[in-house]
Amino acid sequence: MLRDITLGQYFIGNSVIHRIDPRMKILLTIAFITMLFIVKNFIGFAVAIVFVFAVIFLSKIPLKLVVKGVKPIVPLIIFTSLLNMFFISGKTLFEIGFLKITVEGLNLAIFMSVRIILLIMGTSMLTYTTSPIALTDAIERLLNPLKKIKFPAHEMAMMMTIALRFIPTLIEETDKIMSAQKARGADLESGNLIQRAKALIPILIPLFVSAFMRAGELAMAMECRCYQGGQGRTRMRELHYSKLDVYSAIIMAISIVLIVLINIFVPTII
């Protein structure tokens, strides 16, 4: 049950996409999001769709997996589509009772749905192809310049790394404590909302106690190994930009330029 939750969705591999420097991948993802928001018509989306599918193909990640990632937001897509369909005024397409569906509304609904789906598929490629540790590493390096204004970039990254490391441990622990309290007759499955919230107390308190203890032990262990924060700390694996990163940046830039050109020469939808 609890154990079956997959964390992060890193899909081990060694494809071209996997090998792009994680810093570059984060920057490219931000560029990709920007790109999706400057698209103004369906032809522009064609470029974005080709881009996303090319990335998926190159990464050798099963398409099925990526599509599955879209599933949780389907209700959101349906909800916004319905709102758009019924509440945008314009030329009436057909009427059901007091509800009117307009051409503009329908167009906008499809447009928004495509945007959301591409957004999820594209950005999930970042987490599919980058291990959580590489990701936090990259975030630390990208935030480094902010250290000048006293932003604790290293501490942030260390916190994220530790949090990621301890999620499976905490899940296992929760599982154990739940079993132990169930063995003493704790009833977690029935009752109204208040009863259920109360039933969580015997699980949450031991969990917090052990989490604090673990934190203390970890801090002690880190100090024993002379950890003093980021200053003067070197890395076993340094991040290096390669030619691959330059190529990928160029491809991203070309796609954006293409979309801007399409925006200029093709009529806009919104």
């Binding site: 154990k176 404590i177 132990a180 003493r184 107390i201 015997p202 031991p206 106690v209």
Partner: peptide
Amino acid sequence: VGLVFQYPEYQLF
């Protein structure tokens, strides 16, 4: 059927 788990002291709350 009473079951005492390993390290049961972690269940005290």
